[in-house]
């Protein structure tokens, strides 16, 4: 039963990718193998990302060599060396540390094996690799701009809290910057009174938001840098008697980021106003195309951006099919 469900998920994700118009060139792979090296499967985003990559590779006829490093940079370097020793045809990598991955890039360069960083770019280096990254700043800005518009329409000035991710994670910083760019455009409608560093830790997020609500009981605007913190936000808002849907006087304008299934559910139930969505399907296609182009000797930019999009209460019906979280939610709920 479980295997069937997984197969259904993979099929559904692929169908969405194909239906969305991103070309999935079914090129004959001639027994080529791609190493897919993740640092961990720490949220549904990464689980879904790995599934989509697996399915894409399978569809193209590539073999796949998977490894998880559990956030151990040395272990991941060994995994890269093992992949090089096996003469793989490309490496898709999600590293933990943007600097620690540089020796791995250099090793891949020396072996003339193309390396693509999935969703997380490396630090600046003279070694060559291609990074696929969501345009975090733009996506966050678009989502928060919608919510700022909602704040403006309410005719009130809202006090805002932002849950910031790990300060050492470029994605978290770009999302924070996108938030800041948006709220700066609405100085009369949104005032940021709490900046909560979560270190991507659920416990710190819960405590931080609870404390912020203690200091500012009138907070009515919350942005989370990742949807995986939504359960803690719900708990904090419930404890503060502020958990209410759009239209209710107690409603807190809530904006998420990532596009998790839980985010879709909250959008559907009108508890969340907007969510910045990373387009996992597009990012996978970009990664595969980059490897194919590099193998063919074509020039490829070092950074390829996924523009992503903001899903809002205004466009949810039109955009939900592009949201990976909706695909997973639909698979689970029928």
């Amino acid at each position: 039963m479980r295997a069937n469900r997984r197969e259904f998920t993979l099929g559904a994700l692929t169908a969405i990718a194909a239906a969305s118009g991103w070309s999935v060139a079914a090129k004959a792979a001639d027994n080529k193998t791609i190493a897919v090296l993740f640092d961990g499967l720490y949220s549904e985003f990464w689980v879904a990302g790995l599934q989509i990559i697996r399915d894409d590779l399978k569809k193209r006829g590539f073999g796949i060599q998977e490894a998880i490093s559990d956030k151990d940079d040395n272990k991941q370097f060994e995994q890269v060396r093992a992949a090089i020793a096996k003469k793989v045809d490309g490496i898709i990598i999600v590293q933990t540390d943007s600097n620690a991955v540089i020796p791995a890039i250099k090793a891949a360069n020396k072996a003339k094996i193309p390396m693509v960083h999935f969703n997380r770019p490396p630090a600046k280096t003279d070694a060559f690799s291609v990074a696929i990254q969501a345009d975090n700043q733009k996506i966050a800005r678009e989502a928060v701009l919608y919510s700022c518009g909602v704040a403006k329409d309410s005719g009130k000035k809202h006090k805002a809290a932002i849950l910031i991710g790990n300060l050492g994670d470029p994605n978290a910083i770009q999302r924070r910057d996108g938030f800041d760019e948006a709220v700066k455009q609405f100085p009369d409608n949104v005032e940021v009174v709490a900046r909560i560093p979560t270190e991507w830790d659920a416990d710190k997020a819960f405590a931080g938001l609870t404390n912020a609500l203690q200091a500012n009981p009138d907070i009515s605007f919350v942005f989370t840098s990742s949807d995986f913190l939504l359960p803690q936000i719900i708990q904090s808002l419930k404890a503060a008697n502020k958990w209410a849907p759009v239209g209710d006087e107690k409603h807190v304008i809530l904006t998420g980021f990532d596009g998790f299934p839980s985010a879709y559910e909250l959008m559907k139930d009108k508890y969340m106003d907007a969510c910045g969505v990373q387009n996992l399907f597009f990012e996978t296609t970009l990664a595969m195309q980059a490897i194919l182009d590099l193998q063919a000797g074509k020039p490829v930019e070092k950074l390829l951006l996924d523009p992503g999009f903001a899903i809002t209460q205004a466009n949810i019906e039109a955009k939900k099919d592009e949201m990976w979280g909706y695909t997973l939610w639909k698979q689970k709920n029928g």
Binding site: L41, Y42, W200, A202, A205, P231, Q232, Q235
Partner: peptide, 14 residues
């Protein structure tokens, strides 16, 4: 803790 945070993910207790 789970009564407080409402969900557990792979980083729980890390």
């Amino acid at each position: 803790t789970v009564t407080q945070i409402g969900a557990v993910g792979p980083k729980y207790g890390d």
